[in-house]
Design a protein around this nucleic acid. Structure first.
Lengths: 229, 229
DNA sequence: GTGCTTTTTTACCGTTTGGTAAACATGGCG
DNA sequence: CGCCATGTTTACCAAACGGTAAAAAAGCAC
């Protein structure tokens, strides 16, 4: 008889803790290996259990992955909402630097989300082969909307959109593939030195075009920056 | 008896063509799937042969992957050398826009290199698990050096380095994961519309900080852009 | 202790993986 | 034709994969 797993029970049975152990382990493994490379046996080992136990709590690898990515995405969105709320009243350029600081703080303590994103976002044509892939574009769109709300003017919405997308994708690329990025710089991925490098990079790249966007708004000049000669 | 495969022979035996067919197929498969997900059987199918024939020409999957990535990296570096040579005498900002155009042209005709890079560059801690991984940081460093040569002033070398790294990693991220990027924009990955979006994005993001770098050089002011109030 | 449910492990299945060995096919040369 | 090197396929291997079924262990009520 195929009794349903009944994972949603209220009573604090032992299984609840095990389930959390599994999701925590899965989170780690899925943020180190892309979906098809990560295996149930890796996750089991990481959780200190035998791998079939995972199927007692989750019907399949795909559903486990979806659970983890859902958790990660909604958590990341929640954090973003907090950050955007905190910087709402700052001048726009200060807001950006504050946002960058918060993002780096978060990533230092909690590197899995951006790692998992970077690992699986690249999967080329074969989008449907990654369960819950749609969550990644959705996440980026949500962040974009949050960004949009604090950038006041709406006239050059397309430029703002481009700006935000570039920011998000570069942040994912730099923070999510830190081993490679750090290696090029001759730094350790987790070091304070590298984190400072990331801070400089994001500020240096994204402050100037942001100022341009604002200036364009004020001057209502389109396309090119003001050219004094 | 384990006779060496003798693949380096000069005479134009049939095997040479087969070998090229295999590398071409491998190039395609490795640019669609990350190393551990791509399989010898996929490559065989793509090449129209049985998969053990691959092992007749290449001792292992790892060496085949190394061969392909070496080809791709050196080809991409060669192209970059050409591009940088062509734009050497342009004003620095024009040089950037020209470079971006050439990069997009190249990627439209030849999407494999940046796809393969994006697919495998993210592999987190487990760097050694991808054969020839070192080629990726090396490639990025080479491009950085080419960039460096045409940006004349050396005083803020670190800022120039940050700028170039950000450009390269964002280009790889945007061009190498076009399906996801395009999907967020509601566009088709291969469409002219999306290509124009990429052009706008790279120009909009990387022109302003480049102007800043140049201004900083001129004014020998460090860190902050000139602030008129 | 006996029962009964929940949790965990063991043993296994069919499939796919990278790779090897041997059989087979091909082509040029005498 | 035979001979032989080259090229290609067939058949197979051990290992790992995701998943299932049943046995075993643990927990709890009585």
């Amino acid at each position: 008889m195929t009794t349903k797993t009944q994972t949603g029970n209220i009573r604090d049975k032992k299984g609840i803790r095990t389930r959390e152990t599994i999701t925590r382990a899965a989170r780690k493994v899925f943020s180190e290996y892309p979906y098809h490379t990560a295996s149930m046996r890796m996750i089991g080992k990481e959780a200190g259990i035998e791998h079939p136990l995972i199927n007692y709590y989750f019907p399949s690898k795909a559903r486990l992955f979806e659970t983890v990515t859902s958790e990660i995405c909604s958590e990341f969105i929640r954090r973003n909402e907090e950050w955007f709320d905190e910087i709402r009243n700052l001048k726009i350029t200060d807001a950006l630097t504050s946002y960058i600081d918060r993002l780096l703080d978060y990533n230092a303590e909690n590197p899995e989300p951006l790692r998992l994103l970077a690992l699986n976002i690249t999967q080329a044509e074969h989008i449907t082969q990654i369960p819950g892939y749609q969550q990644f574009p959705d996440l980026i769109e949500k962040i974009q909307q949050l960004f949009m709300k604090i950038i006041p003017i709406k006239s050059t919405a397309q430029q703002v959109s481009i700006y935000i997308n570039s920011f998000v994708f570069l942040a994912i690329a730099l923070l999510g593939s830190s081993p490679c990025v750090a290696q090029v710089q001759g730094m350790e991925p987790g070091s304070a030195q590298f984190r400072e490098w990331l801070r400089s990079a994001l500020n240096m790249i994204f402050l100037p075009p942001l100022k341009d966007i604002i200036n364009i708004q004020v001057n209502t000049v389109r396309g090119q920056k003001k050219k004094s000669e």
